[in-house]
C-alpha cells in the first residue's frame, strides 16, 4: 500500500470490521477481558488506546525514513512509551477518579500487541495521514469491541449499563468476573463470525479474514 492513492474508506473499514483488533486479529485480548467488566471502563480504555494508536502511527510514519530497520522495534517501543506516558499524565491530571481505577491498565498500553503491530505493519510503510487514519480506525475498532463486550458483560453481570441499573433481579455475577470475560469474548467472537459468514459472505475465522 505504498502507492500515492490511498483509499481511506478501505482503511477505516479494515480497522473496524475486517481486521478488528479484538475479534478478528485476536490481539490485546488481555486488556479486553480485564477492563470490560463495565461499559464505562471499556469506553475510556478504548479512547485512551484510540489516542495512543493515532499518535504513535503518526510519529512512526514521520520518522520512518530515519529509523534504522535493525533497531526499529526498540525505537517503536520508545515512541509508544512516550505517547502512553502523555496519556497517563493527562488522565492523572484531569480525570482523577477514573485514573484511580484504570491507571494500571493505561500504563499497560505500552505492551499492547495491536499498537506495535500497526506501527510495524502500516505506519512504517505509509505516509503521515494514511497512517494516522489507520491508527484511528484500528483504535476505533478496539473501542467498539470493548464497548460491545462491556455492554454484554455489565448488562448480564450487574444488570446495569454505564453504572445505571435497569433491572433489580439477581444478576449472573460470573459475567463480570474474569471467567465471564472469556465466556463473553468467545461467544461474541463466534457470533460476529457467524454474522460475517451469513450476511457478508466472509470466511469467518480469526486472523484477518478477507
Amino acid at each position: 500500500m505504498t502507492t500515492d492513492k490511498v483509499n481511506y474508506g478501505t482503511i477505516i473499514k479494515n480497522g473496524i470490521f475486517g481486521e478488528n483488533p479484538v475479534f478478528r486479529l485476536a490481539l490485546s485480548l488481555c486488556p479486553a477481558v480485564a477492563v470490560t467488566s463495565g461499559v464505562k471502563n471499556g469506553f475510556l480504555m478504548g479512547v485512551a488506546v484510540l489516542f495512543v494508536m493515532t499518535m504513535v502511527n503518526g510519529t512512526v510514519s514521520l520518522l520512518r525514513n530515519f529509523i534504522n530497520p535493525k533497531v526499529r522495534i526498540p525505537s517503536y517501543m520508545f515512541i509508544i512509551a512516550t505517547w502512553v506516558t502523555v496519556t497517563d499524565l493527562v488522565m492523572a491530571a484531569y480525570a482523577r477518579d477514573v485514573y484511580k481505577q484504570m491507571g494500571l491498565y493505561i500504563m499497560l498500553i505500552v505492551a499492547f500487541a495491536i499498537v506495535l503491530s500497526r506501527a510495524e505493519m502500516f505506519a512504517s510503510k505509509n505516509k503521515l495521514i494514511p497512517s494516522m487514519v489507520d491508527g484511528a480506525a484500528m483504535g476505533m475498532g478496539f473501542l467498539l469491541a470493548l464497548v460491545l463486550l462491556g455492554i454484554f458483560r455489565e448488562a448480564l453481570g450487574k444488570g446495569s449499563l454505564w453504572g445505571y441499573k435497569f433491572v433489580e433481579t439477581k444478576p449472573l455475577l460470573i459475567m463480570i468476573m474474569p471467567t465471564g470475560g472469556f465466556f463473553a469474548m468467545g461467544l461474541m467472537m463466534g457470533w460476529l463470525n457467524w454474522i460475517d459468514r451469513k450476511f457478508f459472505g466472509g470466511t469467518g475465522g480469526g486472523g484477518g479474514g478477507h
Partner: peptide, 8 residues
C-alpha cells in the same frame, strides 16, 4: 460451577 459462582 457457573451457577455456584453466579448465585453463591
Amino acid at each position: 460451577a457457573f451457577i455456584l459462582v453466579s448465585f453463591a
